[in-house]
Amino acid sequence: MSLAFLSPVAADDVAIARSPMERMAKAAGAEFEVRDGWNVAVRYAGETAERTVAWADVSHLRKWEVEGQGGEFGVARREGDAWVCPLTSDRALVIGGAEPSPTALDVTCNYAALTILGPQARETIARFCALDLRPQHAPPHSFRPGSIARQPGMLVVEAEDRFLLLFGWATAEYMWTVVADAATPLGGRPAGIETIETIEATEDTDA
């Protein structure tokens, strides 16, 4: 028997995959586009580039569990579009990009995800997470599994002031509430993935 049932890839384009934060994003004014079979919040009404902190639903990022790939603990390797995050000495979580190998286990829907970015991102996360994210202790590419808002989670420091948070799919509505509540008083607002892509492109150019 196949393990295809684990994967959010539908056999036809009738079934559109949905993030568990879709309702929250919609209520916050998100505009959606279907991308690779996913209904994705691409932008928000009135969204501007200027921000202290923003959060974006990136639950549609594909995730795989791969065996036999460890790596340096606490460090996520960038491989193409993917982050390879070592969970144990012989097991890693691959976030984003294409399927890394035919034996990789599709765990996309085990983890919902938010990107939190901006100069107040670290301060926002400090409101609900005890991880030490000071730059000297968690430089870019750091990988930190640990408690996020009292739930099991994982955090990738994607760049200076930019963090990728992973948490259980079923806890997503709660997480959105927590993140929005922490970020809003600091001037935060939700962002669509177009914003993320723009920043990514800029960073690539800078690099």
Binding site: C109, R150, T171, Y174
Partner: peptide
């Protein structure tokens, strides 16, 4: 602190 209780919800 803030009055949020972790809750799991089905898809």
């Amino acid at each position: 602190g803030r009055p949020f209780q972790p809750a799991k919800r089905s898809a």
